[in-house]
Amino acid sequence: MKRRLATFGIALTLVASASMAEDGPHDAAIEARQAMFQLYGYHFGILSDMAKEKRDYDAALAAEAADNLDAVTRLGQGSFWPQGSDSETDGNARNRALPAIWSDYPDIEEKAAALKEASEALVSAAGTDLDALQGAIGPVGNACKGCHDDYRAERK
């Protein structure tokens, strides 16, 4: 009886630690693309707070944030989205990329193009004045949301 319990206990520990391990094959790509989204979020946050008048408008800072955001839209993402790195196949607990990204790729391309277009308009507007920023930031937010609504898993 004691031996069986011990064997069972060891087996349980092995299984538990295997499921806790995060070194899946796609972790590097997943973490890199999440870092990319953090950059988007950081710069968008600065611009959004200015647009909502939660912080003082600063033309130079706004221009830089918009430039940076635009730079991120030009990152080549070929290696960020390997097959099998979706949230249902891959075991990475922080991964929220839905399988639809891979099956609906034409829609992804359209939405990426919309983001690029909106971001370019924001670059010219952000450093001009607050009105221009407020006018140009909407489409960028829409573009972000457009993808997130369909392709990002709900927060757990």
Partner: peptide, 21 residues
Amino acid sequence: ADEDEIVEGALYGAFGSDTSD
């Protein structure tokens, strides 16, 4: 507000994030 705080209600922030969620 939505998760990215792109659209916020007028009184967003009055409650903590658990209540807000």
